[in-house]
Design a protein around this nucleic acid. Structure first.
Lengths: 355, 355
DNA sequence: CTGTTAGCGCTTTCAG
DNA sequence: CTGAAAGCGCTAACAG
């Protein structure tokens, strides 16, 4: 045990063993059937509400179940019904190690997915995978632990996704759409988002531009491409493209080194709000005034963007809508629908004080 | 479909139905046993590695399984073994609605729990619960969907936790320890953390103090109490206690209104880093210079604290260690160990530029 | 070393 | 309206 941790006395002992002993534990519908003097099928019908049953019998069995604190075993129920009642949410950590889940975008998405799935009666099985071997996804879907999977972010795994999509229907991916893909995606139009950022900086009269967040993940590549493509040629060629990792710590280090080296752009498009906030921090530290000397625009519109100093102008992704669509398309695929098409969300410009 | 979403053509059709048709799908060990010309138990032994088996037979069966892309059905395996292989992580949203999962503290905790559980071979079943009825926890544990539960935050549910702890062993709670609790907890010493903040502000010569984040959750109550208790009496009585919600939006609104009303403290202790960052933003907007005119100290040390403007002084909770301990204690309870004691983590002061 | 068999706890025909 | 019985896919005695 590490220093700073201290053991406490209480051991959380069971308080009412006596009460528990009064009634023998009822662990299965067979136990309850015995007590009720009916068959297991009657108990099943009473508790699931399926099938036809005398109202009195149903009530009697239900009362007994209540009295003995009995609930149907969901796992057994699911096995019998040939389902699991759970959807897997997979986070491939292809490019980035570290606390990927702490990335505000991911946690917001996860929260919305949790709500959306719960609303439809599914459990959410969370799995962060380090795609070491190519069969991580295949292993997962074949293990039968979930009825379907939502993969968040293609990372560098589109080949794997394609392969699995060939034999597994119940999968939807958050990420960029590509006509060549065999899998269904929901994602933002990152190219359009990049263009939005470019036009906004141009509109502010900025001409000495930098892009922060050069990164191999397809989402980031698209944001950069969209940004560059929307710029007049002379400006485009002069854009500085700064590689940055996605964690606050690393992106701050990159931004700080950048200003330290004497670079003084008048407009920065950052590939994520976290990176943008790092730029804000590094700029402040180097005496660069935002937005007077420098306009900064981010991407995502995380909850924190509005409490950045100054509040962050950004390109907004509608994560709630994305989550809703992911679950929706997944359910339609699970229902056997054939023509479930990928969806692309239009990002929107949110103007605040950093630009 | 909302405006801004656009349907794309690709339908993610299966590419290689031909390949799939070559071999009849192998869906169970019975299928594989038939193909291999052995019994189901032999297949089971070959694939699980349990029991004793001729090396040649084992290899042959494994090769066949590989060839037919067959994996054991984990759900059936678990039913038979009387377990589920999953741990439930429950977030009771007693006091706060909204995107609780986006709270950086929660997502960091969740990320660490995911890693810790995966390392021990457990799936993580995520469930956000709105404790409307008192039986939410009982329903969950009795449904048999998981082998144990980790509850993050007691919220206002300690009565429910106590009740369930009376008959269910496999539960550990992140939160404040109280000798009266029947359940095992892991948590930070929030009182000590509050005292750390108080002494730090005092050491900076601050005397006109405010506490941001007056809130009914026990963690927040303890932080405030610890803060007040460590102050000399005359200062303590003058502390302004400002209620604040936990989301960036709401806490910013509270902070902004506070400065707008003309309040000018010289030291602020915020009950979370998010609230502290809101105070930073509101202060900047009202021309209050940090740290010249005002020292701000937060609580948590989220990843973003270091890219706040200015970088945030804060009281650090060791979330990774907390997650490790939660899983550790849970496993020990699951193993039947009787004397599993609650643990309290010592928080640490992290000095940066906001104070 | 390997096969037979009896379930894990549940649902669902099929009879009565 | 209710019961008997088969079986979801797997494991583990128990025999051989």
């Amino acid at each position: 045990m590490k220093t700073g941790a201290v053991n406490l006395a209480g051991t959380g002992q069971s308080q009412d063993k006596a009460a528990a002993r009064e009634k023998p534990a009822v662990r299965s519908i067979a136990d309850l059937a015995r007590i009720a003097g009916v068959s297991v099928s009657t108990v099943s019908r009473a508790l699931t509400g399926k099938g036809t049953l005398n109202d009195k019998t149903r009530e009697r069995v239900r009362a007994l179940a209540e009295e003995h604190d009995f609930r149907l075993n969901v796992a057994a129920q699911n096995l019998r019904l040939g389902r699991t009642g759970a959807i897997g949410v997979l986070l491939p950590l292809g490019h980035e190690r570290g606390q990927q889940l702490s990335e505000p975008f991911f946690s917001a998405m996860l929260g919305h997915l949790a709500d959306e799935l719960a609303a439809r009666g599914f459990d959410l099985l969370l799995s962060r995978v380090l795609p070491g071997r190519d069969c991580w996804l295949d292993d997962f879907v074949r293990s039968g632990r979930t009825d379907g999977v939502i993969v968040i972010g293609q990372s560098d795994q589109s080949a794997v996704l394609d392969e699995v999509a060939g034999h597994y229907r119940n999968m939807v991916v958050w990420g960029a759409h590509d006509p060549a893909q065999a899998y269904v995606t929901v994602g933002s139009d990152n190219v359009a988002g990049g263009a939005l950022a470019a036009r906004h900086l141009l509109g502010r009269g900025r001409r000495k531009l930098a892009f922060f967040g050069h990164h191999p993940a397809p989402e980031f590549v698209a944001r950069e491409q969209g940004f560059l493509a929307a710029l007049p040629e002379d400006l485009r060629d002069a854009v500085q493209s700064v590689p940055a990792h996605l964690t606050p710590e690393e992106s701050y280090a990159a931004a700080s080194a950048y200003f330290e080296a004497g670079n003084r752009p008048d407009g920065v498009f950052a590939a994520s709000d976290i990176i943008a906030m790092s730029v804000l921090a590094a700029a402040a530290e180097h005496g660069v005034s935002v937005p007077a000397d420098l306009s900064v625009i981010g991407f995502d519109d995380i909850l924190l963007a509005r409490i950045a100093t100054p509040p962050l102008t950004t390109v907004r992704q509608d994560i709630a809508e994305g989550a809703r669509l992911l679950v929706d398309l997944l359910q339609r695929r699970m229902a056997g629908e054939e023509d479930v098409a990928s969806v692309q969300l239009e990002p929107a410009l949110i103007e605040r004080e950093s630009s």
